[in-house]
Measured scan of single mutants.
Amino acid sequence: VAMCDYCKLQKIIKETVRFSGVDKPFCSEVCKFLSA
């Protein structure tokens, strides 16, 4: 469980994407796409 980078809620992380050398955790595909 970690904080989703988009919705800022403590959730089970399903996706982690690396932006500019920094790992960004996301709880769902939706949050990942909305943050892009």
Rank of each mutant, 00 (worst) to 15 (best):
V1L: 01
V1Q: 14
V1R: 07
V1E: 09
V1K: 14
V1D: 06
V1M: 14
V1N: 12
A2Y: 00
A2C: 01
A2I: 01
A2M: 13
A2K: 11
A2F: 12
M3P: 05
M3A: 10
M3G: 03
M3Q: 08
C4T: 05
C4M: 08
C4A: 04
C4L: 01
C4Y: 07
C4E: 02
C4G: 02
D5R: 05
D5L: 12
D5W: 14
D5E: 08
D5K: 06
D5T: 09
D5C: 08
Y6F: 13
Y6T: 10
Y6M: 02
Y6G: 07
Y6Q: 11
Y6S: 03
C7D: 01
C7S: 04
C7W: 00
C7Q: 11
C7V: 00
K8Q: 12
K8D: 01
K8H: 04
K8W: 01
K8L: 01
K8C: 01
L9K: 13
L9G: 14
L9V: 08
L9Q: 14
Q10C: 03
Q10K: 14
Q10G: 07
Q10A: 04
K11L: 05
K11P: 08
K11M: 07
I12C: 15
I12Q: 14
I12H: 01
I13M: 12
I13H: 12
I13S: 13
I13A: 12
I13V: 13
I13W: 02
I13G: 11
I13F: 09
K14T: 09
E15C: 12
E15M: 15
E15D: 10
T16S: 04
T16D: 15
T16P: 05
T16E: 06
V17I: 09
V17L: 10
V17T: 12
V17A: 09
V17D: 06
V17Y: 03
R18P: 11
R18Y: 04
R18K: 10
R18T: 11
R18W: 04
F19T: 13
F19W: 13
F19R: 11
S20H: 15
S20A: 11
S20V: 03
S20R: 10
S20Q: 13
S20W: 01
S20L: 07
S20E: 13
G21E: 03
G21M: 10
G21R: 03
G21D: 11
G21F: 07
V22D: 14
V22L: 05
V22R: 11
V22G: 10
V22T: 10
V22C: 04
V22Y: 13
D23V: 07
D23F: 03
D23E: 11
K24A: 06
K24P: 02
K24D: 05
K24G: 11
K24V: 14
K24Q: 05
K24T: 07
K24M: 13
K24R: 09
K24C: 02
P25V: 13
P25G: 11
P25F: 07
P25M: 15
P25Q: 13
P25L: 05
F26R: 03
F26Q: 05
F26S: 01
F26M: 12
C27R: 03
C27T: 00
C27L: 00
C27S: 03
C27F: 00
S28T: 03
S28M: 04
S28L: 07
S28V: 00
S28Y: 02
S28P: 03
E29C: 00
E29N: 14
E29H: 09
E29R: 08
E29G: 06
E29P: 09
E29S: 06
E29Y: 06
V30L: 10
V30A: 12
V30Y: 15
V30R: 13
V30W: 13
V30C: 15
V30E: 14
V30K: 15
V30M: 15
C31T: 00
C31V: 01
C31D: 03
C31M: 08
C31A: 02
K32P: 01
K32E: 05
K32Q: 08
K32W: 01
K32M: 14
F33R: 14
F33G: 14
F33C: 15
F33S: 14
F33T: 15
L34Q: 15
L34T: 08
L34S: 10
L34M: 15
L34V: 03
L34H: 11
L34R: 12
S35K: 12
S35M: 02
S35H: 07
S35Q: 06
S35L: 00
A36M: 15
A36V: 06
A36G: 10
